[in-house]
Design a protein around this nucleic acid. Sequence first.
DNA 1: CTTGTAAGTTCGGTCATTGAACCAAGGTCG
DNA 2: CGACCTTGGTTCAATGACCGAACTTACAAG
Lengths: 175, 175
Amino acid sequence: MALGKDYATQQCSIARALEVVGERWTLLVIRDALYGVRRYNDFLVHLGIPRAVLAARLQTLTAEGILEKRRYQQSPPRDEYVLTARGIALWPTLRSLGLWGREHLTDVRLRTFRHADCGTELGPYGECPACGTVVPVEDVLMEPGPGLDPDPADPVSRAFLVPRRLLQPLETDQV
Amino acid sequence: MALGKDYATQQCSIARALEVVGERWTLLVIRDALYGVRRYNDFLVHLGIPRAVLAARLQTLTAEGILEKRRYQQSPPRDEYVLTARGIALWPTLRSLGLWGREHLTDVRLRTFRHADCGTELGPYGECPACGTVVPVEDVLMEPGPGLDPDPADPVSRAFLVPRRLLQPLETDQV
DNA sequence: CTTGTAAGTTCGGTCATTGAACCAAGGTCG
DNA sequence: CGACCTTGGTTCAATGACCGAACTTACAAG
């Protein structure tokens, strides 16, 4: 556990949140899940995470109600991990964290997020400045930016080179 | 480092951000800095963090330009750590993370954040719904909520039992 | 019946975190 | 003067987390 009992003494919802999502890799797993990744192997190749750590994180996130494990084929038995409402609710946090990283650290535009209905680029908190509304996560269009490697090694990164809606299931087989 | 070279291969500003602020304790140090904590000892007692880890985090955050070390008295020489603009820019991220934690994990209202000018409770991203503007961090009033321990052990937590503006320097000596 | 795939588990080595003890520069008290 | 206090650290041994590689299971395809 990232913080364990230490954070339990903290009377703060930020500390509580970090107990759940503050471990290494966890927020990146959730990010990938928002981008449409659902399968163990896709997380694995896209994140470059050790297998044991990925298995542990998926289990913790499932236990915390952020991901849901569901069988997507019977034979051979295969499960996928899908974000719950609780997990999807982390989108504004990840959006603002990514924006901070872009503005204060990288200075390169790697991805652009737009309101799919009107094409307007999202504001800092995931709202649409044109429509004046909070955009539902499934109506966010993720576009590749100029800073991205045009020929990445793994199939998941390749799938992200074309505009996609958030939460739209990734089908690496069909790529 | 939280993610080290592993994250460097990720073409993503979220991953870059987590390289800098994703290590254990780091976001809680920044949270405390936003709440007005500036001194080594105040961070220490309020967070319950090991001394060596605190020293390491303060150094990293200073090197990354998120905190600034400044001398606040000459004799004996004493330094304090103050947030830079880059550090203050993490407020929306911490605000949305805390809100997520409150809504999805704790269900108890530990603190309330208001626009100091008009008393309206802040919206999910730190904006003032009444004024329709983004509230500057120093104009955010932090109020204790009913879920807080009314008699905490450390003086920093005691200072937080009374409404305070964010970034207002904590003077534990005067409490 | 050999090979392949998806989703893991196991394991030895390395790296980070922890808590306790120690250090140092300068006060303050008697 | 000498003893103790405060602030802000450093050092160190023990524990725990993470890492990468190898192995496992369950099934399908050729």
